[in-house]
Nucleic acid binder design. Structure first.
Lengths: 228, 228
DNA sequence: TGCCATACTTACGAGACCGTAGGTTACGGT
DNA sequence: ACCGTAACCTACGGTCTCGTAAGTATGGCA
């Protein structure tokens, strides 16, 4: 049974009081440190096994700690899961919302697509968790509800645009959902393949969403210039 | 504990040998009948609680039968689940494949979108199961792999089209994924809202995918005329 | 040096669930 | 009216997991 502390990168060797980042890295962690470590491990395991497929003991074991420690910090499995999901949702929502603040609709689309791909790349495990299902029956399924949150923002933008152009603004939700779905599922696919680079994927997504299959550009370019 | 036989609509009253469809409806079912009933119930429960959240006993209880019956028919929980998923995948794949056989790309798009919405409407529980996760870790996650299957078909079509138009056919997978994602996630949204009618949703999806946000038509129409 | 709060452990209760062994009842043909 | 077979049941073993009770070690601080 390999014990592995994922976050702190401190696993083998006796207590070895070598100088760490702040104090000395020791076997017995601070409450806050342990908490973060458990969150990291939990996120990883939930991502690969799902909520029900992950046991508290497994999380504790990977942290090199016994079960009750988890209970002291989070009150139970659901508590830990809730914190993990909450953090991920905030993160993703912040990134996408930030990308949807100002600009021409086409730019917004581009930025939002890029933001999502960025999130997926940086917080892959989190994304996998959000895509999976929540503890029970998920009336407010994490992903569905999050997607809806984002879609709502897109709706508002589209609603204005539609009015300006004389389209029925009642259709904004449908189009918003379609756009978000397009980017989200492409992201889900891209997580595994990683074939074209992020920027290229974003460019093509914008190409499709903006020009449509009927008028695709052969070599789409992003308006904004980003490095990574 | 309400016992309810979902499919056969035969639940209360003594054996009552009234004339049924073929023979007489009786408490003790035929092997095949029981099998189908268990599949129906299993599909429903898996759809609302997920695989791990559903117990064999629960399925048996809802069928008004004891656990070993399930084991005799399917060898276990995974066996039943496998059959349910297999049937749903076949169904969906058949419908979509059928819609992707002949025609102009735009027509294909329209037909495929319509086919998916059709499936979702008719086999809602099945769709929910496919969207959820499979037994363990799902290396071949049911939905992801199914989406890929469909995407592959779209890829082939797009690949030809791209070549004809002088685009890079290597990008076909990306566009295929984006299109399938757009329709699939819109479908997932539509399952709950059911707000615009199916035909209207399909029309707008085609509108977006074909003309793009930059050149949307105000009142898109479907080429094919369908009733429901 | 000795105290004490905090971090952590071992051990166990309770319940859920899967899967099976072995026995029982009803149906349909003769 | 009988009998075999297909459908079905009760009862239980074994495993896994959540969650808790009660006790132990560690390290900073007076």
């Amino acid at each position: 049974m390999a014990i592995d502390s994922s976050s702190a990168s401190n696993s083998k060797g006796k207590p070895s009081p070598a100088a760490g980042t702040r104090r000395a890295r020791r076997v017995r962690m601070t409450g806050a440190e342990r908490r973060e470590q458990l969150l990291d491990i939990g996120r990883t395991l939930f991502a690969e096994r799902g909520y029900e497929g992950t046991s508290v003991e497994e999380i504790a074991a990977k942290a090199g700690v016994s079960k009750p420690v988890v209970y002291e910090h989070f009150g139970g499995k659901e508590g830990l899961y809730a914190v993990v999901v909450d953090r991920e949702m905030r993160q993703l929502l912040d990134m996408v919302t930030g990308a949807l603040t100002a600009g021409h609709p086409r730019e917004l689309l581009e930025q939002a697509a890029f933001a999502l791909l960025d999130y997926i790349e940086t917080f892959t495990d989190g994304f996998r968790i959000l895509v999976r299902d929540s503890p029970v029956a998920q009336s407010t399924g994490s992903f569905a509800s999050l997607i809806s949150d984002i879609a709502t923002q897109v709706e508002d933008i589209l609603g204005l645009e539609f009015k300006a152009r004389g389209f029925d603004p009642k259709l904004a939700p449908l189009y918003a959902q379609a756009l978000v779905g397009m980017v989200a599922l492409t992201g889900q696919w891209w997580v595994d393949t990683r074939k074209p680079k992020k920027a290229e994927v974003a460019a093509h997504l914008v190409n499709l969403a903006w020009h449509g299959l009927g008028n695709l550009e052969a070599k789409p370019r992003l308006i904004g210039h980003r490095k990574n």
